[in-house]
Design a protein around this nucleic acid. Structure first.
Lengths: 336, 336
DNA sequence: CTCAAGGTAGCAATCGCTTGCAGTAGATTT
DNA sequence: AAATCTACTGCAAGCGATTGCTACCTTGAG
């Protein structure tokens, strides 16, 4: 199966074995159409038998293309990203690209540093939810083909999940359940998504004429949620929008610790719909992101960018998923 | 900051600029000690000013080393892996290695396929919790330097988390709480860890003289846990060991659905201590894996393997973390 | 029967960097 | 002062693939 374990199989070994020149072997793989059918098949057969694998370094050197794309995430341990990584990886492999994963560990400077390090090594870059300011990003990216996920940067192709409609729907849902006083537990200022979500909720609250108190910023993490819980209790809101599911889980724990029940005392809405959202108790009402599409679109856009096409900005809609963390307000509380 | 945006900076541009040969520039980077101090500094300064980044493809072609290691995981969306990925990544970057992430999507054949695809592209490979049978693995790995994480394969360096002691401690803990009838919710047969954990629990049960009923195999996932719950209810065990935290969470949900309470009706122990374990309600008593060490050790072993050293097999101990999912047996149940 | 056109193959240069070997100049030894 | 080191530096040959250009061999047309 693995073929002769001689030395190392190159196009030259194959050429010799087949009695043709190396160029022909090369072409048999890269432009099969221009080599004679018989010859091509003979070459492919021998290559398979010998277990030939083209040397990517050599090819990269000759063509200037590395066959590799970078994927920069702010924090791989944040459960939002693994599914995205997988989706992108699968979409990339269709294009015959390998994916170099880069984790910035949630620190903005690390992002630009990492980009600087890999820019010479990849053909393109996908930057997911970057924390760096636009200017820094633009600076380091330079002329490297890149697409941004979950953030809009002027002049760059991007694909974002638009949660506005779903958050509005969530608001309406809560309103119907009788809630009139809401809290917005804000995410990190550096996060584009946080600003976008906050904007959507503010817009809805204004239109619906309900009371909205903003709390935070809190970290986009379980810990951040734990910190947010007392703040929420200090307000008189009966329903809250957390920046994301992770934070919502922290809030859940914080409220439970304080002896409050969800959804009986408070209703809570998360965002992203990570696995956690359906496994916590109570399960979270949240906005489900179309992760698969996000990935395929990112690769598509990157492909376009590498061909020099104009930057396109795609927005995909999140959808509201109702679960157990939202319920009606106890009668006494509604009419104060 | 980014330097002249002329064409592409190579060692030749720098050499010309500095009035030295390309070899000297090359050496100024790869073996700084053997080039004259003044010259070296001049070169470094110019390189920095021009924004020089060595071309990895060229270097790889010349040296035969790619400066890249592969990291194969069975399922990146399983929350056990992201922290491991990060740990490995950080350890790798110290060695100046990039990490190529490969996700097998939980299918064994995909693993061997992926290995085949990247073997020519990386200097070494880290295989985490592989699902393929030993023989297949050995076959595809061949002479590629590789280290296995969380599984022991004859003749290969490996680093595993040994949960035996911690699981035994968990058993004793439950025993002290009054439990006498236990269930083992087995993980997938293909998983080495599942077999190892099962063995440890069997050993303890035998030594402690308690009743142990084995259920499963179940999938190592939330869904698997949901399926395990009815089986657990069908047994008369009062305490259960789940294969991992994910499965334990599923069991938790299944029991809750059936109106059973943890830890009042049943006690439950997980394994791995993923983020989920502390966020579910009730939080999970589990075995905490030393993920960071796992990562650094893996890189260390890989380094050794690449130098041709003998395969070393390291085992690191997991530690028992007590949380809310284990409690005493209600008096009526203990003495039947 | 000769010539042009098409379809295939081969030659050789090139991508950017590493490295064994040889050469040079100054320092040290005798 | 001659001989021997030392410490650098440069030359040039690769590493394995791609690709523009040239050359060859058929065919078909004139």
């Amino acid at each position: 199966m693995a073929g002769e374990r001689s030395k190392r199989v190159t196009i030259y070994s194959i050429a010799q074995e087949c009695g043709v020149s190396a160029s022909t072997v090369s072409r048999a793989f890269t432009r099969p159409d221009i080599v004679n059918d018989d010859v091509r098949e003979r070459i492919h057969a021998v290559a398979k038998r010998l277990g030939y694998q083209p040397n990517k370094a050599a090819r990269g050197l000759a063509t200037g293309r590395a066959g590799m794309v970078g994927l920069l995430v702010p924090d791989i341990t944040n459960p939002f990203f693994p599914p995205l990584v997988r989706a992108i990886q699968q979409a990339a492999s269709v294009q015959d690209w390998s994916v170099l994963l880069l984790d910035a560990d949630e620190v903005a400077d690390e992002e630009t540093e990492l980009v600087e390090q890999v820019r010479a090594q990849v053909d393109g870059l996908i930057v997911a939810s970057p924390r760096s300011p636009d200017a820094d990003l633009e600076d380091t990216l330079g002329d490297l083909p890149a697409v941004v996920v979950n953030r809009v940067v002027a002049g760059r192709p991007s694909v974002v999940c638009d949660n506005s409609a779903a958050l509005t729907a969530a608001g309406q849902h809560l309103h119907q359940l009788g809630h009139r006083r809401f809290a917005l537990l804000r995410g990190p200022e550096a996060s584009w998504a946080a600003r976008q979500r906050a904007e959507a909720i503010r817009g809805w609250a204004l239109a619906a004429g309900v009371e909205l108190v903003e709390l935070g910023d809190f970290a986009a993490s379980y810990e951040g949620g734990r910190e947010a819980a007392p703040a929420l209790l200090g307000s008189d809101a009966t329903a809250a929008f957390a920046f994301d599911d992770l934070m919502a889980c922290g809030v859940l724990a914080g409220l439970a610790e304080a002896g409050r029940s969800v959804p009986d005392d408070h209703s809570l809405v998360g965002c992203d719909d990570v696995l956690l959202a359906q496994t916590v108790t109570p399960s979270l009402t949240t906005v489900t992101a179309p992760v698969g599409e996000l990935g395929t679109t990112a690769i598509e856009l990157l492909h376009a960018a590498m061909r020099g096409e104009d930057a396109r900005q795609v927005r995909l809609d999140g959808t509201l998923t109702l679960r157990a963390s939202t319920g009606a307000v106890p009668a006494g509380v509604v009419s104060r």
